[in-house]
Design a protein around this nucleic acid. Structure first.
Length: 420
RNA sequence: GUGAGCGUAGCUCAGUUUGGUUAGAGCACUGGAUUGUGGCUCCAGUGGCCGGGGGUUCAAGUCCCCCCGCUCACCCCA
């Protein structure tokens, strides 16, 4: 018995249905904002991801990386943004002066130890816009994420925003923060001691109570933003209020990567444990230049499907399967299979659903099956029906039965459709 | 990478503390009560390498060791 590798899962119904439904909704909804779908490769040159995440060493270790037969280093995409940015540069879309608005969806891969809401293969839906620096884009994108999640049915959400400034003002802030923490370095937790050196901003979201007490009194980035970053952030806040999007400013919200600039945001679904971020996004004005394109402002977000579905489940939201006219064809003997298959075929040609009972079992059992699976109608085929050249249509809601002759089946179904 | 918890029927779990005949329940499935009619009820039945291997013992689901897997948390989080 060969099991699936660690950290991957089969998506069975109803989860597969949920994913499909959410993806369908995403296509419809994002297009209302003028976004088009892009399908990017599931693997890229490793270098692309390494360059997009910066010099960070830990991150590279969490990728599925291998050499192809030509000796090139290839990695399965750990996220969507880098690939989209690469496509933007490769197709020279910056030439057209217009902003480029795209969405994508599909599996991502990270070699991590699986835990709640975190798998090695996981699904994301993402949105990116290139070539627009206006804070109003930030507002629209946050709105789009928020409204999309509401539309799917998530109600318990918290929108958190923050500005981490640009290279210049963040650089200054990092120095100030380091200077402040220097005196407490010995009291910080072991993890923060390390973070102090390689990514001091990460100290800000440490959960350790002792660290927290120092963090609460620490200087905050909002007081160190340069005037244009501050102005940008003010527009974002005002814009969100204008659209009645409730948000909280989380001064400790940070990002591990250094291509992020200015606005960053997360949408949290509480009661999802340690992995409660359903949607994370932000502005990344430095990414395109980092991977070799012309300096281009950009902003986007990604939604994690497993967490979204978990959130829906916790809230008791269920996405309804569209009610469909469905027939279950029960046979009293395998001899009538040929007839049964013909009837099923005929029914499907009218656009209604039909399932044939393949197994030989009692009529009781077949009706039980049909009931369990929520069929609205059962067609019974037995000796009597064959003799009379009529089929017995049983309505599973009312229990009423109708004799329908072979050549009036289509008409019968047509009438049913008119009613339902 | 670190730590903790768990692994018994298709599913959810009891039984493990204190070793003792043939390993249980509920749900699901199949049949019957109803010789061709579902849901409710009742009766019966199918279904287990008790995660794998080794050890202790007259005897191991139960105790000991190793391995594997799952889960949660930490780390990390694009």
């Amino acid at each position: 018995m060969i099991n699936a590798p660690r950290g991957v899962e089969d998506l069975l119904h109803p989860k597969s249905f949920y994913y499909a439904q959410i993806e369908k909704e995403a296509r419809d909804f994002f297009s209302l904002y003028g976004y088009e779908e892009i399908r990017i490769p599931t693997f890229e040159r490793t270098e692309l991801f390494l360059r997009s995440v910066g010099e960070e060493t830990d991150v590279g270790k969490q990728m599925y990386t291998f050499k192809d037969r030509g000796g090139r280093s290839i990695s399965l995409r750990p996220e969507g943004t880098a690939g989209v940015a690469r496509a933007y540069v490769e197709h020279k879309l910056y030439g057209s002066k217009k902003e480029w608005k795209v969405y994508y969806m599909g599996p991502m891969f990270r070699y991590e130890k699986p835990q709640m809401g975190r798998l090695r293969e996981f699904y994301q839906i993402g949105v990116e816009c290139f070539g627009e620096k206006s804070p109003w884009l930030d507002v629209e994108i946050i709105e789009m994420a928020y409204r999309f999640l509401s539309r799917i049915g998530l109600t318990d959400m918290e929108v958190q925003i923050n500005s981490i400034g640009c290279k210049d003002c963040r650089g200054r802030y990092v120095e100030v923060l380091k200077d402040y923490l220097k005196d407490y370095l010995d009291s910080l937790c072991d993890v923060c001691k390390r973070r102090y050196h390689y990514n001091v901003l990460r100290v800000l979201d440490c959960k350790n109570p002792t660290c927290r007490s120092f963090i609460e009194k620490a200087p905050q980035i909002k007081d160190y933003l340069c005037s244009s970053c501050e102005e940008h952030f003010n527009y974002v806040k005002k814009g969100l209020e204008n659209l009645k999007i409730k948000y909280t400013i989380n001064p400790y919200l940070v990002r591990g990567l250094d291509y992020y600039t200015r606005t960053i945001f997360e949408i949290i679904s509480p009661h999802l444990g340690a992995q409660s971020t359903v949607c994370a996004g932000g502005r990344y004005d430095d990414l395109v230049s980092q991977i070799g394109g012309p300096s281009t402002p950009a902003m986007g977000f990604a939604i994690g499907l497993e967490r979204l579905v978990m959130g829906l489940k916790k809230e008791g939201v269920s996405l309804k399967t569209p009610s469909q006219l469905t027939f279950f064809i029960a046979m009293l003997d395998q001899r009538y299979m040929e007839k049964g298959m013909q009837v099923a075929s005929l029914i499907r040609s009218t656009g209604a659903g039909a399932s044939v009972s393949f197994k030989e079992s009692s009529l009781s059992s077949q009706l039980r099956q049909a009931n369990k699976k929520n069929f609205s109608w059962v067609i019974i085929i037995g000796e009597e029906e064959i003799q009379k050249k009529k089929f017995l249509f049983r309505n599973m809601r009312s229990g009423k039965q109708y004799e329908v002759s072979t050549n009036s089946i289509e008409e019968f179904i047509k009438n049913l459709k008119g009613v339902s």
